[in-house]
Nucleic acid binder design. Structure first.
Length: 351
DNA sequence: GACTCGTGGCC
DNA sequence: TGGCCAAGAGT
């Protein structure tokens, strides 16, 4: 885009934003911490999903200090159902570093803020531009979609290197008087007008500057290569209750999928193994009775794999010590633990 | 650079 | 219904 159209583009975009921007909770504050929380929650997550989590989270942790030293189990419970749970752990680590190393002031340079856990190129630019009014790019999926159309960029946005093209484009286009509004305007435009399918070009404030609109191929952009299919993994899930009416639960490993979340014991189904024997052996219990009348069998689809879960409801007796991170707990105690959605589905059946 | 890491909504 | 997505970051 050439001068003077850049200036007209900026003005039209920011003016539209001032008129049409959505009233969102994190737009009612200038607290860098609260904007930080919102940006982390919004990573790969829809606005409508985030809103109630955001409100509850800041009610519980209104300041950097209140989050920095919160118990991790409580923190995960606040994040329960939101997904990508490492975000919560990284956010707390970053917040703790700000409290201890930066005297509880969120850094205002890309150099420093990018060192914090959980803050990558996008989140750094979002916080700097929105909270500190710094002219920094914040390129997310929305921005790549909008600018791929406006500037008719046809490189594959699934290739990481392509993001640099868009960052340089934002650097050239950004409104240095209103960088936060400019960045948010691109995102709101992507969410409300310049949508992935059926873009509302006739309502677009910058269609006069949009090459794809002129070419009539906005719905063909951006170019994005496909992903690979998800793998399937089968488990038997043992919902085991003892004589006191307590259920056997265990804490997952501290790294990887659903790290540190709680679950009913799961035995992966292999061709050469008996899951019932494995369960009794691994957890030092014997099955007294199996409830064949109950039946719960369902799939849970993650972004990169699918669980096929078959629940087995049993009464058990403990024979010796349980493995680490496994214990029998009463139902109301289990409900205070952070559990992933597939386990919450099982919990619902028990109530 | 390719994988990993959640969930709910949409068509 | 299955695939695709939605304000990415870590490894």
């Amino acid at each position: 885009m050439n001068y003077p159209y850049i200036e007209e583009f900026r003005h039209s975009l920011v003016e539209w934003f001032h008129q049409e921007k959505r009233d969102l909770p994190w737009r009612r504050t200038s607290d860098p911490y609260k904007i930080w929380v919102s940006e982390v929650m919004l990573q790969q997550t829809r606005v409508d999903t985030v809103i109630p989590y955001y409100n509850r989270f800041l009610d519980k942790y209104p300041t950097l200090q209140s989050l920095a030293y919160a118990p991790q189990e409580e923190l995960l419970k606040m994040w329960e159902g939101l997904g990508y749970y490492s975000r919560a752990r990284n956010l707390q680590a970053g917040v703790k570093e700000v409290v201890e190393k930066y005297d509880a002031i969120v850094p205002d340079t890309r150099h420093d803020i990018s060192k914090l856990k959980g803050i990558g190129p996008y989140t750094a630019g979002a916080i700097l531009s929105i909270a500190y009014n710094k002219p920094e790019h914040a390129v997310d999926g929305n921005v790549m979609r909008v600018l791929s159309r406006v500037l008719h960029i046809t490189e594959d946005i699934a290739v990481p290197k392509t993001k640099k093209v868009f960052e340089e484009a934002v650097d050239a286009l950004i409104d240095e008087d209103y960088p936060g509004d400019f960045n948010q305007a691109l995102m709101d435009l992507g969410a409300m007008i310049c949508t992935p399918t059926s873009p509302k070009c006739l309502l677009c404030p910058v269609r006069d500057y949009c090459t794809a609109f002129q070419e009539g191929d906005a719905d063909q952009l951006p170019i994005k290569s496909k992903k690979t299919k998800t793998k399937k993994v089968k488990f038997d899930v043992f919902v085991a209750i003892d004589k006191e009416g307590k259920y056997l639960v265990e804490k997952r490993k501290e790294e990887g999928l659903l790290a540190n979340m709680w679950q009913f014991p799961m035995i992966e189904l292999n061709e050469n193994a008996n899951s019932i024997e494995s369960f009794q052996h691994n957890y030092n219990v014997i099955i007294l009775e199996k409830a064949d009348d109950k039946d719960l069998n369902f799939k849970h689809i993650f972004s990169h794999l699918t669980w096929e879960l078959n629940c087995i409801f049993v009464q058990v007796e403990q024979q010796s010590t349980l493995p680490n991170d496994a214990l029998f707990l009463a139902m109301d105690s289990i409900q205070a633990l952070p559990m992933p959605v597939p386990m919450l589905k099982i919990m619902n059946v028990l109530n």
